[in-house]
Amino acid sequence: MSLIGERGVRRILAVTAFSAISALLLIALFILNEGLPFIFRYGLHDFLLKSDWDPQAGKFGIYPMVAASLWVTFGAMVVGAPLGVAGAIFLSEFVPKSVMRVIKPTIELLAAIPSVVYGFIGVMVLAPLIRTQLGGPGLSLLAASIILGIMILPTVISISIDSIQAVPQSYREGSLALGATTWQTIHMVTVRAAKSGIIASIILGMGRAIGETMAVIMVAGNAVKIPHSALDSVRSLTANIALEMSYATGLHRQALFATGVILFVVIIILNSFAIVVLRKRVYKK
């Protein structure tokens, strides 16, 4: 190391420390550079709120995809958030520590399963089930919501568990000493104290759901239309990008990047929100 010297090392490390933030800025720069001009030309209003997506005819209204993404995300939250939070509470308050130490990593393994595998399960198992039991094409808003709901479980559970466990034991003891049952203590004291962490976990899960691509492509059906029922085939913003990117050129490609811009902005806002909420939790401790 005498070659570079102590100061040199410090300088090198300091430069590399900016790698992540530079990566983020680089991504922002290139996505914006590719997508923003289109948005300015086409008009944000027409782009977001018109329902005619016909690239051949130069029509780029992504409203059906916006609606689909919002509904799919909403559906995923309806499925995933209650299950995840309930699981987190049960695991951290009712299950012995030793069991928990096995189950938590197991659930976090869910996050490691590739999204295409989730999508495949959706196609092979869930969609046929929906088609035969509820009707419609099977590949639908409902199928996408359920699969995404499962996919966000690890995020929600793991962050919620962390914040529930961060609640000081003395809070619980204080409540129990006043004669409250375990459940009363949990929903009046523990969950309230862990609230910001739980909210953050849900927001981060939401970010995952909005951004998920492959699984949604496989199970949502991909029809460009505003959904009227949960059994309709829909196409999300992400799916639209991935499906058309391979052959899009010119204005069409720019429109897809513009869709990327919208996604990027939404995700950054959600993330910042979650990060701020999580920070607050850390300070409170």
Binding site: A20, A23, L24, I27, G211, L256, F257, I267
Partner: peptide, 14 residues
């Protein structure tokens, strides 16, 4: 933290 939350399709586009 923000980079960790960026969806993979955005990485793909980028």
């Amino acid at each position: 933290d923000c980079l960790a939350g960026i969806p993979s399709i955005i990485f793909g586009l980028f």
